[in-house]
Design a protein around this nucleic acid. Sequence first.
DNA 1: CCTACCGATCGGTAGG
DNA 2: CCTACCGATCGGTAGG
Lengths: 195, 195
Amino acid sequence: MTGGYLKGRIRREDIITAAAAAYGELGYHSSSLREIAKRVGITHAGLLYYFPTKEALLAAVLERRDAEDSDREQLDVAPGLDVLRHFVALAGHNVRHPGIVDLYSRLAAEAVAPDHPAHEYFVRHYRAARASIHESFEVLAARGQLRDGVDPAMAALTFIALMDGLQVQWLTVPGDVDLVGSLRFALQSLLSVPL
Amino acid sequence: MTGGYLKGRIRREDIITAAAAAYGELGYHSSSLREIAKRVGITHAGLLYYFPTKEALLAAVLERRDAEDSDREQLDVAPGLDVLRHFVALAGHNVRHPGIVDLYSRLAAEAVAPDHPAHEYFVRHYRAARASIHESFEVLAARGQLRDGVDPAMAALTFIALMDGLQVQWLTVPGDVDLVGSLRFALQSLLSVPL
DNA sequence: CCTACCGATCGGTAGG
DNA sequence: CCTACCGATCGGTAGG
């Protein structure tokens, strides 16, 4: 008798997928429950049977993104050059999955507002990303693989900012931006060894 | 009898100012005409007497920003190190005027959507900014002021992306980001001479 | 510039 | 899960 539960779980996943796509295309505020429900083939009242409020659905989308990220980092790389290569590879993955970039960029921009329901999520996200990359740059510095005068903390901060900025520019003028090449270039200019 | 015209022009300016602030805080789509009108002390129907549609008001906001930028570049700097210093100074200015950063970041993110009314504006904006900075990096390269292996085109693209990304991160976690210091750091890592 | 209005859309609820 | 509904809000118009 778990059939009902299974079907419900699948439906929930479908709704989260549709919501993530809508948030990427339209932003969170402009994605109505009716629009998301239509993509799944139900009514907006039906959607509210699975997620009690609009914010609860957003929370579910962010939770799934975190879970996916955790999965990917399970095969976790030791701090150092490999982490940087990992991020370049991630950029390559993103180029083939623009929906992920859309979702992240649109939400990040909306969420600068302190009262946006995803604000705290992004505050945590930035801190975690910065800490992780900072650690790698510290390791590189200790090994003498960083160019002279490169401060690990600054390098981490600017590296993340660069990724985010490149993504927005790439979404706006796709033909003008080589996401992977630019990232590799910027990274290389911080290192004293080939990436 | 130009009094009437003058009052109208001042009113128009006030509306544009209020709209720019609202766009920065709420984004374009979430800034209702009623909200903007209230900040000016009129009704939304009164606002529509000055600007016939919501999009016309957005266009006016963008036009004024361009005009202000042109003014600032009137005292125009020759391509080279001075242009880079100019951008660092601009970042310093922005830190003291977060409203400008808000407006720009929020609109840029919304406008990745091709059907956003500010989309074409940002396409042009990115191209122009890139061309201008590219030129400076070319000049620096010719003078041997660029580090070995630094490609002027890539440097221009990543420099703009970095500024944009830093701004979003600064808006989200202001205490964690040194806008000016980070920019100076990133710039210095591209140069073979002190900035 | 305002009052008064329009049709459309929104998130959420009742009740099944 | 749906139908039917609610109050609120939206951009825009009529008519002055």
